[in-house]
Nucleic acid binder design. Structure first.
Lengths: 196, 196
DNA sequence: GACGAAAGTGACGGCGCTGTCCCTATTTGC
DNA sequence: GCAAATAGGGACAGCGCCGTCACTTTCGTC
């Protein structure tokens, strides 16, 4: 889980160095030994660190107080608008629900903080559409299949190709061939979903 | 976060199809429409799904009851030995704390379930050593640096190379060159940690 | 019947990661 | 001093993913 966050950060900030801590104790050691520009905090769950009676807010405020020079973002699974109000007064710049943290969102979050000074990502429109992942597909192919499966019935595939080509900065024709390759792979492995 | 789990699964089971749901409602739709062999459940945090009053146990039991043919594993951030006792009586085969879910562990978990019928992964020895990730390094290089930084002072680097070569099934000499390339990159970008 | 959308197949260059091999200074140890 | 360990550099083939180009066939519709 930490790794996922690290990868998001690395994708958003090229050529950065990320330090990760499994427990609050380790985190406190790190912020004493280093000067960080950006700090992500996952307050964790009840009983996250048994040796500490700190609750969520205390944990956050402790870290923030000890690193006044850094920008702080709270990443939480148990989102709460009220908690955001509380931590923003402490000096937290961002409050992101894990549910609204999709791949690639990190860049937008950091941009928003740079522009408006803060960023909130509660569970807005949870993409209710289920996600399907096929291990035999490369990431690009996976993405193509994902898009195609969400295609409304009255939209031609060609339109999706154009849409996707623009979105990924590639040729619409290439997008078409990706989808075809993906479909061929799924057919070959007998994993073709009924949505053709 | 879901994606991280999906990737772990795909790494553990080659050529598999993974369906992911953001909410319990979506999950219930999925298990009605499909026949799954393996189901991972993250009961989520308090308030995870606001439209449902189900608590953690109710959520888990609902899913388990509706999919008697599948193997169930609970992945949770708020681990609790007591909860494991409760869910095992329902028919859950695995109970894994997110903290003990390191990259590559999935294979061992599934193997353990296949062998002993169940698998528990509470927060055993939390690797207290902090983790450092450099975006400029490739995964292999990253791994080498990680190992080398954890090297006890009285162990020669050569021994680490041998150790690593065996662990990764590569030449010890190759491991050496990976570390050197990694070090050169870090030096070039001014990101070299003091641990040389 | 003609035309366009869609499906199915084959091939190519570029790029990055991997794993291997070789060659040279400099430092550390016995 | 000599040998081993360490640091530093350059080169190569294999492989998978990416993006592109070209060709044929089937189907539905007008």
């Amino acid at each position: 889980m930490r790794l996922a966050l690290v990868h998001e950060l690395q994708a958003a900030i090229p050529a950065c160095v990320v330090h990760a801590a499994a427990t609050i104790a380790t985190a406190l050691e790190l912020i004493e030994a280093n000067q960080f520009a950006l700090i992500l905090i996952d307050p964790g769950l009840p009983g996250y660190d048994p040796r500490s009676e700190m609750d969520r807010l205390k944990t956050i405020s402790t870290v923030v107080e000890r690193t006044p020079a850094a920008i702080h973002i709270v990443i939480t699974g148990a989102e709460s608008a009220q908690e955001w109000e509380e931590v923003r007064t402490i000096g937290v710049a961002g409050y992101i629900a894990k549910n609204s943290l999709k791949p690639g969102t990190m860049t937008a979050i950091l941009q928003s903080i740079a522009d408006h000074g803060c960023c909130v990502g509660l569970m807005h429109e949870t993409s209710m559409s289920p996600e399907v992942y096929h291990a035999v597909l490369s990431p690009r192919e996976q993405e193509l299949v994902q898009w195609m499966m969400q295609r409304p019935a009255n939209i031609s595939r060609k339109a999706i190709y154009d849409q996707l080509g623009e979105h990924l900065n590639i040729d619409a024709a290439s997008a078409e061939r990706y989808y075809k390759r993906a479909r061929a792979k799924l057919l070959k492995f007998g994993q073709l979903p009924e949505s053709l």
